[in-house]
Amino acid sequence: MAVIAAHGAQTHGAGHMSPAKRLQVNRVGLWLFFFSESIIFGLLFTSRFFLLGTHQEHVDQFLGLVITIVLLASSVTAYTAETAMEKGNRKLAAWSLFATILLGVVFAIGVGFEWSVAEFGIKTAVEGQDPHNVVWGTVFFSMTGLHAAHVVSGVLMLGLALMMLLRGHFSKDSHWGISSTIMYWHFVDVVWVFYYPALYLVAGGGTHTG
């Protein structure tokens, strides 16, 4: 009985999967991870509208647009890195990964700069100050902070992937380490696609109480 069970486990276990099947399972697993992450990001996104409606404090519109385009550009370089790897062009893949890291760092610096010049806070409202200011501050710093944390972890993972690539790991036929890291990077971009209008644009570029 135990032998049959063991045989069954081997037959259906990960060790007997074809490389293509294993890759498919990896991809589905990664998407499930994205789904679980989406719940966290989604809750913050929902709380922004639940607490404040469409109210928005002043944020730097130009800076918001610039960092959004920087993150979008980093998705293009990430796509280039993956496509280059699929075609066996390691040199282009390495340079594209490097460019992605650089753009990720620029984005993180942009968010840090936005934080440093923000006209709102998370401390108790001072007398006479609009209480929306503090709620907005909490929402804004929570949303951008969680997202920036993912950007920083993405940069670290991209750096690790680049180091491994330069040390001879990965090939045209086996580069899941790079593909998965790049998918994670695109996911971070997807989150910003929702966060950018929610934090910068929903009030029409200025402050608005809805």
Partner: peptide, 13 residues
């Protein structure tokens, strides 16, 4: 960019 359709396909890189 994320090739979501590959989740339903058994294919190599």
């Amino acid at each position: 960019f994320m090739h979501i359709y590959r989740c339903w396909r058994e294919e190599a890189h």
